[in-house]
Write a protein that binds this DNA or RNA. Structure first.
Lengths: 183, 183
DNA sequence: ACTGCTATCTACAATACTGTCAACAGTTAT
DNA sequence: ATAACTGTTGACAGTATTGTAGATAGCAGT
């Protein structure tokens, strides 16, 4: 699939470093074939982003609606960002302004979701601020994103496996931190 | 200055999108002059990263050794990342493997610094885990990085000024969250 | 069978980009 | 003054990259 090949090439140098010849070779076609399907180099990049946007929504929705109140969803969010979501968001950011609206709706859904949980768990008379919930979700997203992008450089793990384990432990630690704040 | 021009050009498309002609024009010189000083395009990019590395260390040290136990340093860290530190780290990440060691020492210093504060504030008999401190610093760095890169897209601020204000409020909120955990 | 459509290819054109070269000016040392 | 060195430049070479054109093959509908 050409889009997969394009993503693989972007992994090396980002959207600006994408080369049609390279994508073509990776996809096992000639480069005019790519131009035939996507109009231009820019069109190919747009198509990659379009697909990424759908995957972003899918992965975050799955993470959010999983079992558990906080630990599980937070761990799933961190995992999703590590498994390519962060890189795709990065590529979209680096390709100029977002295609209108883009990722905001899913973020608002996450806020709604967590706020409902907090209201359900609240002790009678306890005030639950929506801004507070929004900040929690914001922190979770930026931390998951940041950890996916630079986390590996801060951990001094010798192997990728050890790094993945360290990332899991950090996500769990963070989930408990959030839990203390929620409960 | 050529390095400033190179950074300005990178701001558009990252290291992979850097064009010597473009840098030359921005710097007011011809492109062979750049090659004369930096050997090659790669050499120019390396030089930019070398300088960025020094600035990174400088900014984080300044943020860390500022007044206050937690609120001020955390706010300063977030501000530093927003003022270009995050973008420079991103460029370094996108230019292949780091030049050996690179940013780790400053991270360890931050852990030491915060851990000393925690030990000083600890009630007698209270156990302070170093791994816990490390996780706090890790969270602070990845969150500051993440907020600098994607924070603007999550806030729906109409103007850059409003966004900056929102970022400040979020940094304060986070600093208080950390304070509760420390104190 | 013929027509039109789609996907694909090879070959090519036009441009963009990096890096080299020889020349030139300014500065410093002898 | 002259030589050497440094920083700069325009012109150029070689290659890479995007995009175009025409030819070809497969396939569906008539």
């Amino acid at each position: 699939m050409i889009l997969d090949a394009a993503e693989a090439c972007m992994a090396r140098a980002g959207p600006a470093g994408l080369r049609l010849q390279e994508v073509a070779e990776a996809a096992g076609v000639s480069h005019p074939t790519i131009l035939h399907h996507f109009e231009s180099r820019e069109g190919l990049i747009r198509a990659v982003h379009q697909r990424s946007l759908g995957q972003l929504r899918e992965m975050l929705t799955a993470a959010m609606t999983g079992p558990g109140a906080s630990i599980q969803p937070v761990a799933a969010t961190f995992a999703a960002f590590r498994e390519g979501l962060a890189q795709r968001m990065l590529w979209m950011l680096q390709s100029g302004p977002p295609p209108a609206g883009a990722a905001l709706p899913i973020f608002e859904e996450m806020v709604d979701h967590l706020h409902a949980i907090r209201l359900r768990l609240a002790r009678p008379g306890e005030a639950i601020e929506r801004d507070d919930t929004r900040a929690m979700v914001h922190l979770t997203v930026v931390a998951a994103f940041g950890d996916a992008v630079i986390g590996q450089r801060l951990r001094r793990s010798p192997t990728p496996e050890a790094d993945a384990e360290g990332a899991r432990r950090f996500a769990d630690w963070y989930a408990r931190l959030l839990d203390d704040r929620i409960g």
